[in-house]
Amino acid sequence: MYAQMVDTGVQRVLDAAELEGDERRFQDRIDAGIRVEPEDWMPESYRRTLVRQISQHAHSEVVGMLPEGNWITRAPSLLRKATLLAKVQDEGGHGLYLYAAAETLGVSRDDLIDALHAGKAKYSSIFNYPTLTWADIGAIGWLVDGAAIINQIPLCRCSYGPYGRAMVRVCKEESFHQRQGYDIMTRLAQGSEAQRRMAQDALNRWWWPAVMMFGPPDGESVHSAQSAAWRIKLHSNDDLRQRFIDQTVPQAELIGLTIPDADLRWNEERGHYDIGPIDWEEFYSVVRGDGPCNRERLAARKSAWDRGAWVRDAAAAHAAKHAGEQK
């Protein structure tokens, strides 16, 4: 998802009975559904995992502005331009809420950004794919934001207060994002032959990356188990992925687009769709940095940050000169 395969730094999840003292009280409170707040005692591994997860989520929002921002200047109507601008701006806002949530854990935003630029922090694999036509803007809103919402709604109830509250705000704002994407796709699918082809092509290219966004099956992952025990991961990757597939397939059918999966079948017995094999090799390559746009995305972020350095310095210098003055 926006935070994929977060490392918890633990070797084994301890049973409640094995925990002692502060650790035990901490786990008991989480089990009782009591929110952890920044000033509360927390295990160092919980704190570090959250910093990783929340900052990855924040980086994803901010890097995610780039592929869609690529089309703001080319949006085909003024209303589409305004809507897309508002949407990309929202992503920036979401990044900001999340950086602020991470900062409550005793890290600074600059440090988190430095880690991103140094290639030490990850962001979602999905944003390393290119946006080639206007239909990609529809596909991203529909599929990527659709997947994000499925992941983020449960996180509103996660154990860490500031993260949960940021997610509430994000979810509230994000409800229009998926609809605007589907609206673009619907219009294209009902349009000219060229527009229909554009829509199908975008679905063909974005479907599998969107399915992969949820990350590989949790299986025996100790990190997934630990995150679940801490209630910062509330459902398995496969459960969320299934939910996404089940909700999206009928939406594609409704507008006459074809999901690019020859093995896609409704499974009456399970009450879910079965899908063909996922190419995890591709997923791991993208995560490793070999996706189509990894270098461009990071270079764009770094360049904006570096070109902005003298601006940030100037504002700080001006503020320092006038510190103590009554405005």
Partner: peptide, 28 residues
């Protein structure tokens, strides 16, 4: 609007996008 995502700091990105949005709205 071309600057969205390329500003000197996140807060300024959001501010610039707001101004661009106002102007596109006014143009309409």
């Amino acid at each position: 609007s071309a600057l969205t995502g390329h500003g000197p700091v996140l807060e300024e990105d959001i501010a610039t996008a707001n101004i661009a949005l106002d102007l596109v709205g006014e143009a309409r």
